[in-house]
Simulated scan of single mutants.
Amino acid sequence: KYMQRIKAVEPDLVIISLGTNDSYCFKFSETEMWGNMETFFGMLQQTLEDVPFVLTTPPPSYLRRSVKVAGKNRKGSKRRRNRYRTTYHFNDNTEKASRLIRSYTVEHGMACFDLSAAMGGEAETRQWLRSGLMHTDHIHYTVGGYTRHGGLVADALLGSIVRGKMDRSDQSKL
């Protein structure tokens, strides 16, 4: 039903952003993600036979790790209060997912915008977090952050139109 709803819109171009959920884990599986893309795009291409696709790689994010630490007894209670220390680690799986998506698009003749590279990597992602463009969960972005994402993709699309075609050999610019 979902594919039929997409077809009913009669799109001229479909832009698909994926990889964030696939890469947000401690045991990332390239094989599983590739298989999911094969299944999804098989259905999508069958539904939208002549519509071109542009894929975007996932934006950088952080993995959250909470570790239980010894807590103090509550006042007047024999039970210990559970306490957790939460840390965030740059999610290296995002780059793995990005490489996989870039490979997939080359193999299947699709255009790709490398959002991860366009955002500037780990150092720049910390800056997005400090400036309020990334939500405090270290995964999602604020309205301003998603607006900037959209601007990066739109600028790349407009650039490819100005050049007269989608240049599939330059993965970072479409």
Results as ranks from 00 to 15, higher is better:
Lys1Tyr: 14
Gln4Tyr: 04
Gln4Glu: 02
Val9His: 07
Glu10Cys: 03
Pro11Met: 05
Val14Phe: 04
Ile15Lys: 02
Ile16Asp: 07
Ser17Thr: 08
Leu18Arg: 05
Gly19Thr: 11
Thr20Cys: 09
Thr20Gly: 11
Asp22Glu: 03
Tyr24Thr: 02
Phe26Cys: 07
Lys27Thr: 09
Lys27Asn: 07
Glu30Thr: 06
Thr31Ala: 00
Thr31Gly: 05
Gly35Ala: 09
Asn36Gly: 10
Glu38Ala: 07
Glu38Trp: 15
Phe40Asn: 11
Gly42Ile: 02
Leu44Phe: 09
Thr47Glu: 08
Leu48Gln: 01
Glu49Pro: 01
Asp50Arg: 01
Pro52Phe: 04
Thr56Glu: 00
Pro60Ala: 06
Ser61Tyr: 03
Val67Asp: 05
Val67Ile: 10
Lys68Pro: 14
Ala70Leu: 08
Ala70Tyr: 13
Gly71His: 11
Gly71Met: 10
Lys72Met: 10
Asn73His: 12
Gly76Trp: 11
Ser77Pro: 15
Lys78Val: 09
Lys78Ser: 09
Arg80Asn: 14
Arg81Thr: 14
Asn82Met: 13
Arg83Leu: 15
Arg83Pro: 04
Arg83His: 12
Arg85Gln: 05
Arg85Phe: 05
Thr86Ser: 00
Thr87Arg: 01
Asp92His: 14
Ser98Glu: 14
Leu100Tyr: 12
Val106Lys: 12
His108Asn: 13
Gly109Glu: 11
Gly109Val: 04
Ala111Gly: 14
Phe113Ala: 07
Phe113Val: 14
Phe113Gln: 01
Phe113Pro: 04
Phe113Cys: 06
Asp114Trp: 13
Asp114Ile: 12
Ser116Glu: 08
Ser116Thr: 10
Ala117Met: 03
Gly121Pro: 09
Arg126Asp: 08
Arg126Pro: 04
Gln127Cys: 13
Gln127Tyr: 11
Trp128Ile: 05
Arg130Leu: 11
Gly132Ile: 14
His135Val: 08
Thr136Leu: 07
His138Leu: 02
Ile139Phe: 04
Tyr141His: 13
Tyr146Pro: 10
Ala154Thr: 08
Asp155Tyr: 09
Leu157Glu: 05
Ile161Trp: 04
Ile161Thr: 03
Val162Thr: 08
Met166His: 10
Asp167Asn: 00
Asp167Leu: 09
Gln171Ile: 15
Ser172Asn: 15
